[in-house]
């Protein structure tokens, strides 16, 4: 479930976006899968950083890195990438 601070609008846009990608890559499930993995890895690293409070000198995957990974995954799908950028804090 979403964090309480997440508004329903943000949650709904995220659901629609994930569905859009899923449908766009119906013939290439490995691309959709890779997209999920990128987000999953990002989230996992963020949690690890939080737990270690940066003691290991790592800041985890940055949002810039997430964006470039997704950009190389969504080559030729500029609309998806532009929409993805709208979720990123520094886009």
């Amino acid at each position: 479930p979403p964090a309480p601070e997440t508004s329903p609008v943000e949650f709904d846009s995220a659901i629609s976006y994930v569905n859009k990608i899923k449908n766009r890559f119906l013939d290439h499930p490995e691309i959709y899968r890779a997209f999920l993995e990128i987000l999953h890895t990002y989230q996992k690293e963020q949690l690890e950083v939080k737990e270690s409070r940066g003691n290991r000198g790592s800041s985890g995957m940055t949002e810039d890195e997430v964006f470039s990974k997704v950009a190389s995954l969504f080559k030729g799908q500029e609309d998806l990438l532009a929409e993805f950028g709208q979720f990123l804090p520094d886009a």
Binding site: P2, A14, V18, N19, Q86
Partner: peptide, 27 residues
Amino acid sequence: SYDFTPLDSSAVYVLSSMARRRRASQS
């Protein structure tokens, strides 16, 4: 209705958290 796997839901969660931080940083 959506047929989401746990990994799908996790992606939705990550994206909405990013959007929330974006909103927070803009206000």
